[in-house]
Amino acid sequence: MSREVLSSVVMPIAGEDDVVLVRRRVRDLAQAQGFDAFATAAVTTAASELARNALVHGKGGRATVRELNEDGRAGLSIQFQDQGPGIADLERALAGGYSTARSLGLGLSGARRLVDEFDIDSAPGRGTMASITKWKRLY
């Protein structure tokens, strides 16, 4: 299996408008790659959650949006990097229903359920790197 990166764009996340721009780009690319409406909504929403996390908890950062191709199958991957305080209890944050910002606390756990591949790396003082990948359905 070979995974090919067709395009890669780095976008800053410094304000709420940037969150909107990131998810608009993700939605446009998903549609351009021929994702169905469910997959498009899923990857767009997951990107929205993680972009907002980078903004609210990570004090801003950047998103790298990549179009992928794996043996003819189209995919989309978005990597979020912030320089925030990091997540102290990653397990608890991923379990859902836990929030440090008086919100629903479902962002991370929800985003994970919406995509095909989910990867997160965080520790106090190191910031957070989260990466999601969604593949176009074959059937």
Binding site: R23, R27, A41, T44, T45, S48, E49, S103, L104, G107
Partner: peptide, 9 residues
């Protein structure tokens, strides 16, 4: 266009 946890909240 997008209903994420923030909008739901």
């Amino acid at each position: 266009p997008v209903v994420d946890t923030k909008v739901a909240d």
